[in-house]
C-alpha cells in the first residue's frame, strides 16, 4: 500500500521576474514502511516539495495541477484546519538544523509536552511519554533532559531530541529534510542507524531528503533523483545506483567524491548551471548540460519505464 502518492504535481511561484515553475510534473510514491530518498543539487525543488506536501507553501506559491494523496486524502484539496490536524500527528518533520528547529527559551520537556497538545493525555502522561521517547532515541538521563534547554545539548543530541519529537505521535509519514547535513560524519552514521531502527519500530514511511549520495545509498529503499524541479529518474536504490538511465543521474553518481578511485586534485563536476526556472526550455531541462543530447531532446521527454518501478525521463532511456 502507498502512504503518499504524488501525481503530476506542478508548483509555481509568482515572482517579480514572472512565473517560476518550481515543480513540473512530479510523480512518485512512498510505499508503506519504506524509506524513499530524494536527491538533487541545491535549488532542484526539494524544499518546495516538502512545503507542498505539508501545505506550507509561501504566499506567492501555488499548486497548479496534480495531486498529493496521503492515506486516501488529496492534500491539495484539504482545508487549512484538516491540514493542521494532519501535521504533527500523521505527517511529521525533522529539519536540517536542530538548533534552529527547537525553541531556545523553552525546556525540551515543555516543547515535547506542547507537541502532544491534541492527544488528550494528562500532563504526567505526556511527560512520561516524552521521557520514554527520549530514552528511545538514547538520550542519557532522559528525566533530567526534560528540564534542560536546547543549548545545553550537543548537536547530535539535539537532532535526536528533534527526531524524538517528530516521532512522538507515531506518524504514518516522517519527512526528514537533510537531517544529518549539520552533523559530523560519525554522528551522521549513528543518526541514520537510529532513524532506520525507529522507522522499523514505529512502522512509518520516511521521505528522506538529502544531497548526500552515500547516506541515501545506505538508508533508502527507493530513490528519486530530482533536477530543476523535475523527477528525472526514480526506482529502487539498487536500480538507480547500479544502472542509472538518465544522463543527469549518471553524472551525479560520477561526481560523488566517495566513488573516486585513487587520489585526484580535480573532482569531476557537471559543467553548466540549472536553467532559469522562469524560462524553462521547451524540451528536456537537462539538455543544455547533457553530453549525449540528440535532436529529440528539444521535445518534451517521455517518462520511460525501464523496468518495473524504474522510470527515467529521457528519450535515450529504453525499456529492456
Amino acid at each position: 500500500m502507498t502512504v503518499l502518492a504524488i501525481k503530476d504535481l506542478n508548483v509555481t511561484f509568482s515572482t517579480e521576474g514572472g512565473q517560476l515553475h518550481a515543480l513540473k510534473n512530479v510523480s512518485f510514491d512512498v510505499p508503506e514502511r519504506r524509506i524513499v530518498g530524494v536527491v538533487g543539487e541545491s535549488g532542484c525543488g526539494k524544499s518546495t516539495l516538502i512545503n507542498a506536501i505539508l501545505g506550507l507553501l509561501a504566499d506567492n506559491g501555488s499548486i497548479d495541477a496534480g495531486s498529493i494523496t496521503f492515506e486516501g486524502e488529496d492534500l491539495t484539496r484539504l482545508g487549512p484546519a484538516r491540514m493542521q490536524e494532519l501535521r504533527g500527528q500523521r505527517i511529521s518533520t525533522v529539519f536540517q538544523d536542530p538548533m534552529g528547529a527547537l525553541n531556545p527559551v523553552l525546556s525540551v520537556g515543555r516543547q515535547m509536552r506542547n507537541i502532544q497538545y491534541r492527544s488528550g493525555r494528562s500532563r504526567s502522561e505526556k511527560d512520561a511519554r516524552s521521557e520514554a521517547m527520549l530514552r528511545q532515541v538514547r538520550i542519557p538521563d532522559a528525566q533530567a533532559a526534560l528540564a534542560r534547554y536546547p543549548h545545553e545539548f550537543s548537536g547530535g543530541m539535539r537532532q535526536r531530541v528533534a527526531i524524538a519529537m517528530a516521532l512522538m505521535m507515531k506518524p504514518a509519514l516522517l519527512i526528514a529534510d537533510e537531517p544529518t547535513t549539520a552533523l559530523d560524519a560519525t554522528l551522521e552514521v549513528a543518526t541514520i542507524e537510529l532513524l532506520r531502527e525507529l522507522q522499523q519500530d514505529i512502522a512509518c514511511s520516511v521521505l528522506f531528503i538529502s544531497h548526500h549520495l552515500g547516506v541515501i545509498a545506505e538508508l533508502c529503499d527507493d530513490v528519486v533523483v530530482m533536477y530543476a524541479g523535475e523527477v528525472v529518474e526514480r526506482g529502487t536504490t539498487r536500480q538507480v545506483f547500479h544502472t542509472p538511465r538518465h544522463p543527469y543521474a549518471r553524472r551525479l553518481l560520477e561526481c560523488d567524491p566517495a566513488r573516486q578511485s585513487g587520489r585526484t586534485r580535480h573532482l569531476p563536476t557537471i559543467p553548466g548551471e540549472i536553467p532559469d526556472l522562469r524560462q524553462r526550455p521547451p524540451g528536456c531541462v537537462f539538455a543544455t548540460r547533457c553530453d549525449q543530447r540528440v535532436d529529440a531532446c528539444d521535445k518534451v521527454p517521455p517518462d520511460v519505464a525501464v523496468e518495473t518501478g524504474h522510470v527515467a525521463r529521457c528519450v535515450l532511456a529504453e525499456a529492456r
Binding site: 494532519l86 504533527g88 529539519f95 538544523d97 531556545p104 517528530a166 519527512i175
Partner: peptide
Amino acid sequence: GSEFVTAAQSMGAGTTR
C-alpha cells in the same frame, strides 16, 4: 521566519499556539 516557528507549524501548531 525563524526555523523553530516553521518547525512548530509543520508539527501542527496553529497561529495562536
